[in-house]
Structures are given as C-alpha cells and as structure tokens.
C-alpha cells in the first residue's frame, strides 16, 4: 500500500538573500512498508520527524533523497498527484484549520466535488461518510459549534467521502481532550476493521497505539523500533530515552518485574495486569 525507500528529507533554512543558513536532516533513510488493511501507529516525540514523514506519504513534501510509493505510484510523479491523494487521504492536527465548508455536509462534499464526482453520487458518498463517523445528526450544523472530537470526525468523513484506500492521521488527537481523543481513535479503528481501510496513525499518546497492529517508533528522523505494541512497550527504558513513555500499567508491571515478581513484559491494559498479577500470586500459593 505504502512503501518508502531510503527516504531522507532536509529542511533548508535560508537567510534574506537566499543563501543557505542551515540544513537540518528531518528524516534519515526511512524504510517502511505498510500492507493493505494494516493499522500502523507511528510513535515519536515532538521533533522526531514523524509529521514530516506523514507529509511525505501524501505528496505534500517531496523527498530530498530516496522515494515514496503510494499504491505503486511514486509521489514525485506530478501526473499522478490527484490519484495519490485520492488513494491516501490525510487528516491533520488542528481541527479548526482543515474544515473548509461552513456547514458540516458541505465540508464533507468538498473532496468529491474536487474529484468531479456527479452530484447524485456526491450525496450518496456524503451520507455514507457521515454515517460511518457517526455525525449524521450534525450534518446541517456549523462546524464552529462542534467539539474538537466532532470536528476531527467531520474531517475524517471528508476524507472518507473520497473513498481512499488509506487514511493518514497526522496527530489527530494532539489538541483534543480525553473524550475527543477516544472518539477519534475509536472512529479510526472502526474504519479499519469494518471498511478495511489502511490506517496510519501518527501520535505521541501511548494509549492510542495499544490497538495498532504494528508500531513504528521514530527518533531524530530515524526509525528506531518496530514491532507489535507488546514488543514495543516491553522496552520501557528505551522508550524513555526517546522522550516517550509507556501506559501506567505497563510501567507498573515493569517496576514489579524489576523487584522480582514474574510478570510478562509489555502488559498493555488494566485487565491484563490484574489477571497476570493474580496468576503470579496463585502460582505462589500453588508452590506453598
């Protein structure tokens, strides 16, 4: 679905006369491949390059070196630009700055309008997209009246109406409260499971990546870890060195493990922890 090959990107800063002032390597030989139907989370601290990476997947930025393929199309191919963007849609961080329409349904229709879809089909797509994100009730409202989570769901619907194969969510929850965050992640998860849409979620919130099929950790422009959430979260100390964290339960299990209590690494949920802890205790009683 999406593949990057030795992707590198430099931010070049120029002074007023246009001379190069400084070059910062934001991405350094990133090699990633995402299969259709995957739910992949890209985890990284601020400044790790994760957003720069996301912007390459939708041909907003072009690689300095290396290449990016979306469904086999190289992003540098200008003739394929619209095809690439209708294959891989993108949702951004700030909910206010990506809604174009003044009422919800107009906004969702914006993408299909640009694609030249016939009017009747636009309506079908808008109806369906709003239904998928659970925003049908608000279709005639002004986006300004919605909560942050609802605005992001409208933005997702706007992308869904273009019928993409893949959705890239670039820190969609960074500006939301916990309720909004849950709404957005749940919506993304459902699209992935029910519609088979490939999801690439960029974030720095640990709780959000637990349900991903695969987690990619970035630091200083490089991919530093890759694996299932369980594998990633068993590396508590390494994650901390990347300015990241683990969920509280994972940290607790890690701490107990250090103190000699046999708990498996990479515990992700409260329920799992409780079961494992009780198992460890009953193993003791069994011994005694």
């Amino acid at each position: 679905m999406i593949k990057t090959k030795d992707l590198s990107f430099d931010y070049i800063r120029r002074d007023e006369e246009g001379n190069v002032e400084s070059i910062t390597r934001a991405l350094d030989e990133v090699n990633i491949s995402v299969k259709p139907g995957d739910f992949v989370a890209v985890l990284g601290a601020n400044g790790s390059g994760k957003s720069t990476f996301a912007k390459h997947l939708d041909a907003i930025l072009m690689p300095t070196e290396g290449s990016v393929y979306v469904n086999g199309m190289p992003t540098t191919d200008e003739d394929k630009l619209l095809d690439i963007r209708r294959t891989a849609g993108m949702v951004f961080q700030n909910p206010d700055n990506q809604i174009i329409g003044t009422i919800v349904e107009d906004d969702v229709g914006f993408g299909p309008e640009n694609l030249g879809i016939p009017t009747e089909e636009i309506w079908e797509r808008v109806d369906k997209a709003l239904d998928r994100v659970g925003m049908t009730k608000y279709r005639c409202d002004s986006p300004n009246k919605l909560s942050g989570g609802q605005k992001q769901r409208v933005a997702i619907a706007g992308i869904m109406a273009m019928k993409p194969k893949c959705i890239i969510l670039d820190e969609p929850t960074a500006m939301l409260d916990p309720v909004g965050r849950r709404e957005v992640i749940k919506t993304a998860k459902e699209l992935n499971e029910k519609e088979g849409v490939t999801v690439i979620l960029i974030t720095h919130y640990m709780e959000e990546v637990i349900e991903a099929d695969r987690v990619i950790v970035m630091d200083a422009g490089k991919v530093v870890l890759e694996g299932t959430p369980r594998q990633i979260f068993s590396r508590v100390e390494q994650l901390k060195s990347f300015r990241l964290d683990v969920p509280q339960v994972t940290a607790l299990a890690f701490e107990l493990n250090k103190r000699g209590i046999p708990l498996p690494p990479g515990i992700l949920t409260v329920k799992e922890f409780e079961e494992e802890y009780i198992k460890a205790l009953s193993a003791l009683e069994g011994d005694a």
């Binding site: 174009i100 914006f110 640009n114």
Partner: peptide, 11 residues
C-alpha cells in the same frame, strides 16, 4: 494549514 488540507482533498 488550510492550504495543505485543501490540497490533500484534491483541490
């Protein structure tokens, strides 16, 4: 931001 959002929606 808005320009980018419009671009990715094929404007």
């Amino acid at each position: 931001d808005l320009a980018m959002a419009m671009e990715v929606r094929c404007y």
